[in-house]
Design a protein around this nucleic acid. Structure first.
Length: 234
DNA sequence: GCGACAG
DNA sequence: ATCTTGTCGC
């Protein structure tokens, strides 16, 4: 995929916040999703206990069968610290380098993190959506900001996630009965309604959508392999 | 000042 | 997120 560098990642937390405030206005919440999507991607990162080392992974799934058609991984270093609200500056650099090697371009990408349901409206999924100029959805396991009521008990039930002014940022979505909901929000170039529809469609069995679930399994797999490999060589 | 806080 | 065994529930 072609990357569109909108700014440097070598910044301080204060500069990062300024960047988010500026870029948030460029996020497109309208739907530009190819209908129906044929290829859906999931991306995630696994951190090694040893400081700095990280493993990024992107999995491509057939949107119809949900079968994994391709897996891509990349090992690298992460220097930016984890600061709530600034996750992009920690994970985006490595993920973008990996996306450069991804082909063909997926019709939709799901990320483990927020989209616009973010203090400054630019969570990981939205930020990467701008760099990739591709439809993206934020699928976080826990809430970062916004308030919501408990959604209904059945799969598909959801409650709006709203900010203090009453603006809807996303939804707390039940992807499986008897499981805690996940937080879905527009990343870029997709409407919330379509985001919910597709997240549900790619979550046939587990709480976590298949794309990000597969990506999560992939990065943890390669991290352990790499750690075990160096452990045996010593 | 205190609590909240994606991964 | 990562470090970790068993354990409760469907």
């Amino acid at each position: 995929m072609k990357i569109h560098p909108l700014h440097s990642w070598a910044v301080t937390p204060k500069e990062a916040i300024a960047i988010q405030k500026n870029l948030a206005a460029r996020v497109d919440r309208k739907n530009h999703l190819r209908s129906p999507p044929k290829l859906i991607a999931g991306a995630d990162i696994s951190l090694s206990q040893s400081r700095g080392t990280a493993y990024a992974g992107v999995v491509l799934l057939d949107a119809e069968t949900l079968e994994v058609v391709a897996e891509h991984t990349l090992k690298g270093q992460i220097d930016f610290p984890y600061v709530p609200g600034l996750l992009s500056f920690r994970e985006a650099p490595l993920l973008l380098e990996l996306f450069t090697q991804i082909h063909p371009t997926p019709d939709l990408i799901l990320f483990d993190g927020q989209g616009i349901a973010h203090p400054r409206g630019l969570g990981l999924a939205s930020h990467l959506g701008l760099f990739l100029e591709c439809p993206t959805v934020g699928c976080a396991k826990t809430r970062l900001t916004g308030e919501h009521q408990e959604p209904g008990p059945d799969k598909g039930d959801h409650a709006p996630l709203k900010d203090r002014d009453g603006n809807t940022l996303g939804v707390a979505l039940r992807t499986r009965q008897r499981c805690k909901p996940i937080f879905v929000s527009t990343g870029h170039r997709i409407g919330l309604d379509h985001a919910i529809e597709w997240v549900l469609r790619v979550s046939p069995r587990y709480r976590i959508p298949e794309p990000t679930r597969q990506a999560h399994n992939l990065v943890n797999r390669i991290r352990r392999e790499d750690q075990d490999l160096r452990a045996t060589s010593r």
